[in-house]
Design a binder for these strands. Structure first.
Lengths: 144, 144
DNA sequence: TTGCGTGCAAAGGTTTTGCATGGCA
DNA sequence: TGCCATGCAAAACCTTTGCACGCAA
């Protein structure tokens, strides 16, 4: 339908580089800007938002919010195939994202449909919790 | 620790009434205000936010966001026990919330921990999708 | 009478929009 | 040259905060 030409620009390249070096963690628009500033690249926050929006539409990154976040979070899903067909887990401490790329995903879909008559849509379906590392750290910290 | 007295007020009663008649769906602060206006009850939006916050702290309602929502959504979980121990499913069309109150919840927890080393925290863990009703409607609508 | 609850106005923060300019193809 | 991309400023939007007053207990 709306076949739009995409020009290659310095800003876009810089943002893509950020994404590809941060595939394991989620980030906010402000994180991207901070990275740009640290590397001496001049990119406006509006431009960052516009590029992140476009990437979300193209399915190259995920966009979501939680009750704890006051801003949107994004994550590159490019290295993983079929991200719209499995759900994701996010660590609330470090922001790391895990992909449920395994046989259990099918079982989950099946259970939801058969027992709850619910058709899951994996986009925006995120389970919150703690990854291995952060769980250990949090546990240690909270001990007397 | 902070044992705070709770006064019973007209606003609080009105909000609680809204909650108890809307246990099946999520709502925003603006939904509550709209309901109040329709019923001729004068309640300030600030007051609504403050009461919803308090109810969230008490564990009587859930609070969450999704990438699609531009505002926070809340839902009464009072009729369901142990809502912090199971995850929820939300219909993206009608906002309805379903509770995974079944044996499968344990299997899910176990799988996440054993295969992904992920410790799920059910608060804020919401699966998005379509409920039975909306799935049928959407399917029909999209047919030629 | 005490101090929690409320309304009002204003501020805070993130995200979006309009418009003129810049730059890729 | 045509049109997408960008920067800047301002707006939009939801949510929170400060303060004075009202009201439950």
């Amino acid at each position: 339908m709306s076949e739009q030409k995409n020009y290659r620009t310095k800003s876009k390249d810089a943002i893509m580089e950020y994404l590809q070096t941060h595939t394991e963690h989620s980030f906010s628009a402000y994180d991207v800007r901070e990275y740009m500033q640290e590397n001496g690249i001049q990119v406006n926050l509006t431009t960052i938002y516009r590029n992140l929006d476009k990437l979300t539409e193209n399915g190259e990154i995920m966009k979501y919010k939680t009750a704890e976040d006051e801003c949107c979070r994004y994550q590159c899903v490019k290295p993983h195939a079929h991200c719209s067909e499995h759900i994701h887990m996010q660590c609330r401490e470090c922001g790391k994202i895990l992909h449920m790329e395994c046989h259990f995903m099918e079982e989950l879909k099946k259970h939801l449909f058969e027992h709850h008559k619910f058709t899951i849509e994996c986009t925006n379906s995120v389970l919150m919790g703690l990854c291995e590392n952060c769980k250990n750290n949090v546990t240690v910290q909270h001990q007397p």
